[in-house]
């Protein structure tokens, strides 16, 4: 029996303004995969995620999530958890960690309605999952960088998604915190069968945890198992730097 991919793109192309940000991106992500999208700064990684979320429409090509165009997903969009990169918010925004996590459930289907009681239960479960239940009432701005990232992950998990899209989730985290964060993602993937697609410019960390890597820099340069991708000469081409520099990145 053929498995249906959770994410499918075919010859995807995106032009923003006068700039061709992505071209010829074809990939498949299957249930339970943990795929790392890697590439240098400005490679189009975040644009790819935004295309998958239906936040922007491709100039050409096909993008399907759960077999449907993202903008047509409707309620199925509730099965996609998203952790954006660097959310910008007013300093001292008066929200507790739990308030932030609950926002994961504010979707089109709950718009204008009171949140059901089970939303709070799910928020509590998500906070417990990321080890922040005891900090649920803590003002969000008082959390450390690592705790904030875990709270954002809990916010994405609060919808009980089948697909998690994470944009630079390890940005600003020290190494031990990164390890714990990715170990948690592995647990979610193995226990719940959640498909994880994460974007990062950090080769070393992503290669350690992802089941597959896709390296892009405007176009797709190489994809496969972490070992295959890391040993591929196309990686140098994508990053436009020498192998010894990349080697340091690979070693972290």
């Amino acid at each position: 029996m053929t498995r249906q991919p959770v994410v499918y793109t075919q010859e995807l192309e995106m032009i923003l303004g006068n700039s061709r940000v992505l071209e010829n991106i074809s990939m498949e992500v299957f249930p339970g995969d943990m795929v790392g999208i890697i590439g240098p700064n400005g490679a189009g990684k975040t644009t790819l995620l935004r295309l998958l979320l239906g936040l922007i429409r491709p100039t050409a090509g096909t993008v399907l999530v759960f077999g449907t165009r993202p903008e047509k997903l409707g309620k199925t969009m509730d099965e996609v958890g998203y952790m954006p990169q660097h959310p910008t918010f007013t300093d001292h925004f008066p929200l507790s960690a739990e308030d932030v996590v609950l926002m994961g459930t504010y979707t089109a289907s709950t718009m204008g309605r009171r949140l059901p009681a089970e939303a709070r239960q799910r928020a509590a479960l998500s906070l417990e999952r990321v080890g922040l239940l005891d900090r649920r009432g803590t003002p969000f701005h008082e959390l450390s960088g690592g705790q904030r990232q875990r709270a954002f992950l809990a916010r994405a998990l609060c919808k009980e998604p089948r697909l998690l899209l994470l944009d630079e989730p390890n940005a600003g985290l020290d190494l031990p915190t990164q390890s714990r964060f990715f170990a948690l993602l592995q647990e979610l993937r193995l226990e719940k069968g959640i498909t994880v697609l994460l974007v990062s410019h950090d080769l070393a960390v992503v290669a350690r945890y992802a089941s597959r890597l896709i390296c892009i820099n405007r176009t797709m340069h190489v994809h496969g198992s972490p070992a295959d991708v890391l040993n591929s000469p196309q990686l140098e081409e994508a990053y436009r730097c020498e192998f010894d520099v990349l080697l340091n990145m690979k070693r972290g």
Binding site: L53, L55, P84, M103, G104, G112
Partner: peptide
């Protein structure tokens, strides 16, 4: 009053609100 939580959500993180399908 009707859209308080959605207004709060777009004030805090517009990108996530948009990804969650809020107008």
């Amino acid at each position: 009053i009707i859209f308080f939580k959605e207004l709060l959500a777009i004030s805090f993180d517009e990108e996530l609100a948009r990804a969650n399908g809020l107008p």
